[in-house]
Amino acid sequence: MRPFEYQRCDTVTDARQAGAGGSRFIAGGTNLLDLMKLQIETPQDLADINRIGLDTIDETDEGGLRIGALVRNSDCAADARILRDYPVLARAILAGASGQLRNRATTGGNLCQRTRCSYFYDTAMPCNKREPGTGCGARGGQNRNMAVLGTSEHCIATYPGDMAVAMYALDATVEIQAADGGTRLLPVRQFHRLPGDTPERDNELDEGELITAVLLPKPVGGKHGYRKARDRASYAFALVSLASVVEVSDGKIARADLAFGSLGTRPWHDPRLEQLLVGEEPSKALFEKAADTLLAEAKGFGGNDFKIPLARRMLIATLADATGLNAAGEPA
């Protein structure tokens, strides 16, 4: 870990000024310090924003919720309103990490979580995300954890988190404060970037910008679920995860908000699925078509080929379960 200047911010204004001055924000620190110890992140100035507030969950005028950026994952997942109206989000958060980490990790920080790609994590390895221009070590190497959607020739790493996947399904909005004090709103589905030829940029935050909140829209009905396939029963990153909010009305699918984790280079929401499913009668054939659509452009790199059939199985099973079909894909 390189030496850095540490500054404690007491207000959002302090934080904005620190951001304008080029400081990196540290909140929970569970990812940033991890990376700093390995000299993967080397900030010269660190602005501690743990005491600037932004740590409450409030109702919005639109009937949704505003989750402050510094609300800890634990608090978010234990909030009665979240549990009642957005269980997909609580489940996703609880599927991630451990009790200890969730007690530190924050809403804003979690959105900015960096990849778990082992080539990113090893400074002796080529990695375009860590060091642009050095190449991608994962392509021809061990790539079990890598993405099958949204990859580029420069990077095939996933966004590894869980919370954001549920936020994609819920079509949440990220509230961002610029270093000059202006505020902008960005749909979370546009927050993370595809790697393209700039894999070093994980998301759309500009330098000095601070996430101040995540806004959840008015609650919607339907069956909420978060399914996470992983190598061990707990405390493991997803191989593939699926956040779902599915509603059936009058025998037809009325809502199918779906997002996948660890499948793409960012949390993966494919609007074609909704178009294909909504208004249709649930059937196995329909779900298979949805899987075909989702995975039409999927490309494996050897070690991660299995994610394609895994995602397919999870999507079909989740839709069947949420719409009341049995295992054979018939109405139960």
Binding site: R116, N145, D231, R232, A233, S234, Y235, A236, F237
Partner: peptide, 9 residues
């Protein structure tokens, strides 16, 4: 995190 020894669950 990446070499998976069993956890409690």
């Amino acid at each position: 995190a990446e070499y998976h020894v069993p956890v409690n669950l």
